[in-house]
Simulated scan of single mutants.
Amino acid sequence: MSKHRLSDYLTHLHQAASDASGFVTGMKLDEFLADKRTQQAVIMNLIIIGEAATRVMEGYGHFAAKHPEIAWSSMRGMRNRIAHGYFDISVEVVWQTIQTAVPELLEQLAALHPDADTEERKSVT
Rank of each mutant, 00 (worst) to 15 (best):
Q99S: 11
A71H: 10
G61Q: 02
L112W: 03
W72R: 09
V56N: 01
L6D: 05
T25A: 15
N45G: 07
A34M: 09
A83N: 04
M44E: 12
T118V: 08
G59I: 01
P68E: 11
V93G: 00
V91S: 01
T25Y: 09
S90T: 05
N80R: 04
K66G: 12
L105T: 02
D8T: 06
I43P: 05
D30R: 10
Y86H: 13
D88H: 13
E58D: 15
D117Q: 11
V56T: 08
S21I: 01
E92Y: 11
D8S: 12
H67Q: 04
W95N: 05
W72Q: 10
V56D: 01
I49G: 08
E92N: 08
L33R: 12
D35V: 09
T11W: 01
V91Q: 04
D35S: 12
V24P: 00
L29Y: 09
K66H: 14
L29R: 15
M78I: 05
G50V: 05
V24L: 07
Q99R: 15
M57I: 07
I49Q: 06
E92K: 12
H12W: 08
E51P: 06
H14E: 10
E119W: 15
M1S: 11
H84M: 02
S74T: 09
R5E: 09
H67W: 14
V93E: 10
G77H: 11
E58T: 10
E51R: 07
D88Y: 09
I43K: 03
H14C: 00
P114Y: 12
S90C: 07
Q15W: 07
R79G: 03
H62Q: 08
K28F: 11
S21L: 04
K66W: 03
G85H: 13
A20G: 04
K122W: 06
L106C: 03
A110S: 10
V124Y: 00
T25C: 09
S123A: 15
A52F: 11
L46H: 04
S90V: 01
M27W: 02
